[in-house]
Design a binder for these strands. Structure first.
Length: 798
DNA sequence: CTTGGATGGATCA
DNA sequence: TTGATCCAT
């Protein structure tokens, strides 16, 4: 099945963030060994040969010119002070479980903000924040939320010198009204204008949420990350890399062309390989911007319908791929290369390595089952052999029934024998006919072990919710009539100190219910730790031996006494490396984009369902589309869950609202006191009317059919059809923002603070033209509460 | 002497 | 569905 797509009509409606951990492995190591903090480090695996292969470099080291693709020794040359941290070996194989666990920890935090996230890799996740932005817009409207400087910290905007200019730009466009922006909008197709106009406000709000997310990640895990915020995945990913580390970048629609102008085609995800190269050659282009010249027909003719359509869209900054909720990987695998002479040629060697791989798989599966209640149905054995000097890769699958190591091994051997012609050398049935230079075991096709719910998405949601319920059981019970805004009573702040040093995953502490699960989990952790210790000792001993041995053959051969067999094979394998012709194959895949209808249906499951049966939410009483109820409930739960974690934020936020601006204070009190009574006409509106200025965002017309379900707008008292409520609230929120901005302008006259763009790291191509003078005082607003200022302080004096 | 190694996702015939 | 291949980090 093709990937889920959103409707082309929603192309500017979604708010997507990519969160990417900064040099993640290094951060993990630094946290594990605080002595390393601040020093240049790199993480290497297998440091026997030339200092080992670098798999991560921290920023101090990068400053010295150390990059990945270097060996440890080269890094030392570049940066003599560098600390090379070696990935531990388990069973003579690099063990990355540390990083997997750390990644899981991060994902756990991310999950509390939205269920709509895809874990893209161990250190990256896509989040769809569309609904959260809507909620926040409403909160803003109710005065429960206002943008604070902290929310804009470390934030960059493509095309602007600073976030301040961006905010100001938004402000100006709002106050100047629709007509003034028509220059800009003139090129925008009529049907897109509405979304286009709201884009910047929403991106800004999304960015403020991302700020909180990143702060929460930092607070709860100790890890720093960067983020990109845009209307789709690919652009979010793209801009995430623009400012690093520990920064986030917004991509406004308006500046996509500018960004594209000098953006090498290969930078776009999906175009980094052969397909991208082929495009550049075929079309004689280098930059994304040049792609816009080509018609959809031509692109489709050259590259097939799907790829052509996708390219056509991408050239316009459009990517419709949905963020599908997925927290756990679809497959679990491990593999190892046996390069050159190390190629496996003896059956005993093969057996040995299969056992090692099987052990790892089996262990990880056990763990996985505990955590995720699932078992794989299938195992894939993949291998690369050298057959008369050419590499041949193959893979075979077998059904999987048990995690038993022996069974896994024998199955693997079976498929190998079955599918490798003349498995053994004719002379000797101990020697493989074709040496194996790569071996991998991969399991997948998971099946839920939870018999009640299948492994349908619905079921998984259900289960997630149940887990969360259990974890919060002692906390918030149902029945309280809180809305999703979750206006909580202030709790005493508990200093959520630095992340604990102990290496146990955080999940453990989360709860004391579900004894058996955690007991089991804990036991496994301890056991694993013990085993690790033992292995470390063993490893240490062996390394010492190796170091004594000047002629560094690989560990494997030393361990296995099949040198003679190897020698025999060396003769045959005086390999000439052959460069396979770099002829582009047939259509390389690009992310799919068939613009067929009905993706809305699939996407809608997670986003905005159309008219369908409704059910009443037991928590807020709101009527929700039936198949949306789980997500809706999830939201409540997410808020409940994160209450403790976020109470600090929230109360801080409130204090700031109260303490910074009298106006904000007033807003807040009115918001609280009015409760149900029809709101007095918001002062903004009056102000606006008085000022005789147009509003950018016109009050959306509401349908008046009598049979639609409506809800009374808290702000203006009108009955608004539920389906239009979000949009309606947008309208108010936009005005609120405008109000904020105007107040800010006023305040600005007495307040000179500006926000400083911390580094000149902007992509040169996308630098804004306007470079207004900035005060050079590095007005940091970190930390100190009284340094927290209202958004007003972010305006420049012009 | 190994176009980095381990890992995961996705596409296509 | 399977196996080969590509892509990304």
């Amino acid at each position: 099945m093709s990937k889920q797509q959103t409707s082309i009509n929603n192309k500017y409606d979604r708010l997507i963030a990519l969160i990417d951990m900064d040099c993640f492995y290094c951060q993990v190591e630094e946290q594990l060994n605080p002595e390393l903090q601040g020093k240049p480090i790199a993480v290497v695996q297998y440091n026997a040969w030339r200092g080992g292969g670098i798999i991560a470099v921290n920023y101090p080291a990068r400053a010295h010119g150390v990059t990945r693709h270097m060996r440890g020794d080269e890094a030392k040359e570049q940066c003599p002070d560098i600390e090379l941290v070696k990935v531990p070996n388990i069973r003579e194989k690099a063990d990355l479980s540390k990083y997997r666990n750390a990644g899981k920890q991060v994902a756990t935090v991310l999950q509390t903000f939205t269920p709509l996230l895809t874990r893209a890799s161990v250190d990256e996740a896509y989040l769809d924040l569309t609904e959260q932005v809507q909620i926040r817009l409403m909160d803003m409207n109710k005065g429960k939320f206002s943008l604070q400087p902290n929310a804009l910290k470390n934030t960059f905007v493509v095309g602007y010198d600073s976030i301040a200019e961006y905010v100001q730009d938004i402000s100006e466009r709002i106050t100047q009204g629709t007509d003034d922006g028509s220059d800009e909008l003139a090129h925008i197709p009529e049907e897109d204008r509405k979304a286009y106009k709201k884009s910047d406000i929403k991106l800004l709000i999304a960015s403020s949420i991302v700020s909180e997310i990143r702060a929460a990640v930092k607070e709860q895990t100790g890890y720093e990350c960067s983020a990109g915020i845009a209307h789709n995945k690919i652009l979010a990913k793209l801009v995430c890399g623009l400012n690093k580390p520990n920064k986030q970048t917004i991509l406004p629609l308006k500046h996509i062309p500018q960004l594209y102008k000098t953006l090498p085609v290969g930078k776009v995800q999906g175009l980094g390989g052969k397909f991208g190269e082929r495009i550049c050659e075929d079309l004689g282009i280098k930059h994304m911007g040049e792609l816009i010249k080509f018609s959809k027909e031509e692109l489709q003719r050259r590259y097939d319908e799907k790829n052509g359509q996708w390219l056509y869209n991408m050239a316009r900054g459009i990517d419709l791929e949905a963020v599908t909720p997925r927290l756990v990987s679809k497959s679990i695998g491990c593999c190892k290369k046996f390069p050159g002479r190390n190629a496996i040629s003896a059956i005993t060697t093969l057996n040995h390595w299969l056992h090692e791989l099987a052990k790892e798989i089996s262990e990880r599966l056990e763990q996985d089952e505990l955590e995720n209640n699932r078992r794989p149905k299938q195992m894939v054995v993949s291998y690369v052999q050298t057959i008369n000097n050419a590499d041949v890769s193959s893979s075979r699958s077998v059904n999987m029934t048990t995690f038993d190591e022996e069974k896994i091994v024998s199955d693997a051997i079976d498929v190998l024998k079955r599918n490798t012609e003349k498995f053994f050398k004719s002379s000797d049935n101990c020697v493989l006919n074709n040496p194996i230079k790569f071996l991998g075991l991969n399991v997948g096709k998971f099946e839920s072990t939870d018999v009640k719910k299948g492994n349908t998405i619905q079921g998984m949601f259900q289960k997630t919710i149940e887990n969360q319920k259990n974890e919060t059981k002692d906390g918030v019970e149902t029945s309280d009539k809180t809305t999703t805004d979750c206006d909580q009573t202030d709790k005493p702040e508990e200093s959520n100190g630095a992340p604990s040093e102990d290496s146990k995953p955080k999940e453990e502490k989360k709860s004391d219910v579900q004894e058996s699960y955690f007991a089991k989990y804990h036991r496994m952790q301890l056991q694993k730790k013990a085993e690790e210790e033992a292995r470390k000792a063993e490893e240490e001993r062996r390394r010492n031996e190796e170091e004594a041995d000047e002629d560094q053959e690989s560990d494997e051969e030393n361990t296995l006494n099949n040198d003679m067999l190897m020698e025999e094979l060396k003769q045959n394998n005086q390999s000439v490396q052959q460069q396979p012709e770099a002829i582009p194959r047939s259509e390389s895949p690009a992310p799919s984009t068939s613009s067929n209808a009905n993706y809305m249906e699939s996407y809608a499951e997670f986003y905005k369902p159309l008219e369908l049966p409704k059910v009443e939410c037991t928590k807020c009483g709101k009527k929700v589309n039936a198949h949306e109820i789980q997500i809706h409930t999830d939201e409540h739960l997410a808020f409940q869950l994160t209450q403790e974690q976020r109470v600090e934020f929230q109360s801080q936020l409130k204090r700031n609202i109260v303490s910074t601006t009298p106006a904000a204070k007033k807003q807040k009190t009115t918001a609280n006191s009015k409760s149900k009574s029809p709101p007095k006409l918001a002062s903004i509106q009056k102000f606006l009317v008085k000022a005789g200025q147009d509003v950018t965002i016109a009050m959306p017309s509401t349908s008046t059919a009598s049979n639609v379900e409506t809800e009374k707008c808290q702000e203006c008292g009108k009955n608004i059809p539920i389906v239009e409520l979000f949009e309606h609230m947008d309208y108010h929120a936009a005005k609120k923002l405008q109000d904020e901005l105007m107040k800010a302008e006023i305040a600005n006259r007495t307040n000179n603070n500006t926000i400083q763009n911390s580094a000149g790291k902007n992509v040169s191509a996308v630098k804004g033209k306007k470079s207004k003078t900035k005060t050079s005082s590095n007005a940091t607003n970190n930390g100190a509460p009284n340094a927290m200022k209202n958004i007003a302080s972010f305006f420049k004096n012009t």
